[in-house]
Nucleic acid binder design. Structure first.
Lengths: 155, 155
DNA sequence: AACATTTCCTACTAATTTACTTGGTAATAA
DNA sequence: TTATTACCAAGTAAATTAGTAGGAAATGTT
């Protein structure tokens, strides 16, 4: 598992797409504007996302991108893996001193952790994030209204 | 939160240190040999780790590095943060279109996720990983003995 | 049919980060 | 005194990230 700025751009762009894609496709130009990412870099990222069918492109005027499937069926791990391909870290496969010996323990421990991080990110979907954001927004609104109520009562 | 190869090197090196540091300090030369990381790169990483007091160096012959504190008190997040410093992703602080408006929602969603990943890695210590490894090793051994028992019974 | 818009594609490049190299100095055990 | 080790700094090669440039292909609009 890897978590670089490239992966963040992709997650951020997918979030933008999910949030603004309710009524019709979203153009990369819009996402570029919204998120401050160059159009061409977005094109690269979306080529990877499209290859994994996480997004679906529609050409021509009025075109743009849709999510490839429901926001609940797209995990953060899906997105990161699409753009930031999984690099095997334990390069001990061919290395001396490392075949089956004690030396490999460290590598396998890292591998286990890496899988655990992956599992963690697999369980969080774009849909989850959006719902979480909505809940927080609602909480803030409720809190504000309470505060203003108390304010008016005190006045 | 960021999870690059640099962070992996650091976690791997710390694991090596924890595993081999029971009897006396471990030299960077040993870790370099074990893990296939250049000595000088390790020096760089350990400069950062030492700055955060995750390791303690002892000079002179017979010297090397100790863990700075108990393996249970060193989280993966500690290690990664030491070498791979936290970069703020939401650069919308100064950007137009992004101050308080809808545009920022995507960023704050990413931020929330980032914090969640951080919390997750904070809860996993070097000690945890090692115990997990030992348990797995024991499981394997137990399973092997069962298999060989059944083999002898069948014969 | 012509045009504008958009995805889609390729090649190149600047900037940044990663990993390593070199050549030291300082502390310390033998 | 010497060997060994951490510690330090400057430079560099390799890889990755992010962006540029210049298109072709599809498609809705006029």
């Amino acid at each position: 598992m890897r978590l670089s700025t490239k992966g963040r751009y992709a997650v951020t762009a997918m979030l933008d797409l999910a949030l603004n894609g309710a009524d019709g496709p979203v153009t990369l130009a819009e996402i570029s504007e919204n998120q401050g990412i160059s159009l061409s870099y977005l094109e690269q990222l979306f080529a990877s996302l499209r290859a994994k069918e996480l997004v679906r492109g529609v050409r021509g005027p009025g075109g743009g991108y849709y999510l490839g499937r429901s926001a609940d069926d797209i995990s953060i791990a899906n997105i990161i893996c699409a753009v930031d391909e999984w690099v095997e870290f334990t390069r001990c496969g061919g290395r001396k001193n490392c075949s089956g010996g004690e030396r490999c323990l460290t590598h396998s421990l890292w591998d286990d952790l890496s899988i655990e991080i992956f599992d963690f990110l697999t369980k969080i979907s774009i849909g989850d994030l959006i719902r979480r954001g909505e809940r927080k927004k609602a909480d803030r609104a409720a809190h504000l209204s309470v505060v203003s109520d108390e304010g008016s009562r005190a006045a």
